[in-house]
Measured scan of single mutants.
Amino acid sequence: QEELVKAFKALLKEEKFSSQGEIVAALQEQGFDNINQSKVSRMLTKFGAVRTRNAKMEMVYCLPAELGV
């Protein structure tokens, strides 16, 4: 569980995922086979993730800066 949270936060820091499906796929690539869209959705809510525009003006998920991840 701890490893999943770390990987999840690291992915969001990249600010390149525009959908929950993309986050699920990226986590599965890292070996988290039991991850699915509903789990990702709950984690996004739990950590207060928001959708914002990145440098390329794409809408992407990211974590609020005050979490200091």
Rank of each mutant, 00 (worst) to 15 (best):
A7F: 06
M43P: 00
K9M: 14
G31C: 02
Q20I: 15
R42K: 14
V50M: 08
V5G: 07
E2Q: 11
T52P: 02
R42N: 13
D33V: 14
T45L: 12
I35M: 09
Q30A: 11
E29K: 11
G31S: 02
V5A: 10
N34T: 11
D33S: 14
A49K: 02
K6S: 10
E2R: 10
Q28R: 14
E58Q: 12
S19C: 04
N34D: 13
K46L: 14
V60W: 03
V69P: 14
I23K: 00
K39G: 09
V24K: 04
E29I: 10
K6G: 06
K13Y: 11
V69A: 12
L63R: 02
L67I: 14
M59T: 07
E15S: 07
Q37V: 13
G31D: 02
V24T: 07
Q20R: 12
Q20L: 12
G68Q: 12
K6L: 12
A25V: 11
S38E: 14
E2T: 11
L44A: 02
L63W: 06
S19L: 06
I23V: 03
R53H: 12
N36F: 04
N36E: 06
F47L: 14
E14W: 07
Q30P: 00
L11I: 08
L44K: 01
A10D: 11
C62S: 13
N54W: 02
L27W: 00
V60P: 02
Q30N: 05
A55Q: 09
T45N: 11
T52Q: 14
F17C: 15
A65R: 08
A49T: 03
T45D: 14
F47A: 07
L44E: 01
N34H: 11
L11K: 01
Q30K: 09
R42I: 13
V5Y: 15
R53E: 08
N36R: 06
V50P: 02
K13V: 09
T52I: 15
V24N: 02
E58Y: 04
Q28H: 10
E3Y: 09
T45H: 14
V50S: 07
V60A: 04
Q20F: 09
G48E: 05
T52G: 11
V50N: 05
L12N: 00
V60R: 03
